[in-house]
């Protein structure tokens, strides 16, 4: 695969040659976008940091800043279609703008370094640089101004609004400034959640499957298949509730705490599993299963705070103070109950 097929030429500037990039996605760009969501080879998903041109920019053209996570870069160049502009790509170690800004790699230091290193003051005759709004977590506009003379203009949150932003005289509407988290966005990130939980998905059912064969008379392979099969369905349901259903139904589940969102939704489905006899027929086993599915879904749902766009550190810490002991307690009690049942 041609790794840098987005570079389509070179342009001469007062500070040397600058690569020109395409604003159209190739098939390989599209494929790698899908792959990155499924966490396949994510470590290779970088573009080279540096200074690029779009179209035939000159000394009056705008400068847009991006991260060297390829998805961020791809969305920006696509949004700049039919424009003449400069693109400054910061070295964020292949992380997207918002997260890199949180870590500080998309920050004042890297931005001032690159403004100077690429001699932007020679290439353009204005002093404006357009930074994505979410970069503000790491960039201090007044510090950049005092260190480089360049004035940071915060662009819209989403690259797709850039055209409207520029046409409105570099003004973003309140809508363009807001981070939303619509259903489409939540669906898009489900693969990321699924691959995050994949080790639980493999390890825990395997453990249950092996343990399922144990009974008071020794070990039975038949029992491992029947009981283990049911255990697999129960565990998979819990995993699905925490990683898929909670994200999809997020605004409609009537609890603020993510752990309770995950818990409530899995218990609704657990009633079905119980009804269809997947939870066994003794009270110990039934209660154990409610505790186990509850703890798994609750934990995975709680981890979704990291993907969501509106939870605060203080809030998550407060939630975890009660949720984590509950999840550990449920898992331990459930597992003990379920194992005891094997021997009765």
């Amino acid at each position: 695969m041609n790794k840098k097929d987005y570079i389509i030429g070179k342009i001469d500037t007062a500070a040397g040659k600058v690569p020109v990039i395409s604003t159209v996605w190739s098939n390989s760009d599209l494929i790698s976008t899908i792959k990155v969501r499924w966490a396949i080879g994510r470590m290779n998903y970088k573009v080279k940091q540096g200074f690029y041109a779009i179209g035939t920019p000159d000394e009056n053209s705008d400068i847009f800043v991006s991260a060297n996570f390829k998805l961020s870069f791809d969305h920006l160049r696509k949004a700049l279609h039919d424009m003449n502009a400069w693109v400054l790509v910061l070295d964020t170690k292949g992380i997207n703008v918002w997260c890199a800004a949180g870590k500080g790699t998309f920050g004042t230091k890297e931005l001032t370094y690159r403004i100077k290193a690429h001699e932007l003051d020679k290439i353009v005759n204005h002093k404006n640089i357009i930074v994505p709004q979410l970069g503000a977590v790491g960039v201090s506009a007044h510090e950049v101004k005092s260190k480089t003379g360049f004035r940071v203009i915060y662009g819209p949150v989403r690259a797709s609004d850039i055209n409207a932003f520029v046409n409105a005289g570099y003004k973003a509407t309140p809508e363009m400034r807001k981070v939303s988290f619509p259903l489409k966005e939540r669906m898009k990130l489900i693969p990321v959640e699924l691959s995050y939980g994949k080790y639980y998905l493999l390890f825990i059912p395997a453990l249950f499957f092996i343990l399922s064969g144990i009974n008071s008379k020794g070990y039975s392979v038949d029992l491992a298949w029947t009981t283990g099969g049911k255990a697999f369905v129960n565990l998979f349901t819990a995993y699905l509730c925490g990683s898929v259903l909670t994200p999809i139904l997020l605004p409609w589940i009537p609890f603020k705490r993510f752990s309770l969102k995950g818990l409530s939704i899995v218990w609704v489905l657990s009633i079905l599993l119980f009804y269809f006899n997947f939870f066994g027929n003794t009270i110990t086993e039934i209660i154990s299963w409610f505790l186990i599915t509850g703890s798994i879904s609750s934990f995975l749902a709680m981890n979704y705070t990291g993907t969501s766009t509106f939870t605060s550190l203080s809030g998550v810490q407060k939630e975890m103070k009660t949720a984590l002991p509950m999840q550990i307690g449920f898992a331990a009690l459930g597992l003990i109950g379920w194992i005891i049942k094997r021997f009765i």
Binding site: G102, L134, V137, S140, G306, T311, L313, S314, V316, E319
Partner: peptide
């Protein structure tokens, strides 16, 4: 507020303070 810290970082008057960090259980 999700305590991202962008306001504190971009307030030239140092009028805003927030203990910023990741709102992420993991």
């Amino acid at each position: 507020c999700m305590e991202c810290g962008a306001c504190e970082k971009n307030c030239p008057q140092v009028a805003i303070s927030v203990k910023s960090g990741v709102g992420c259980a993991a």
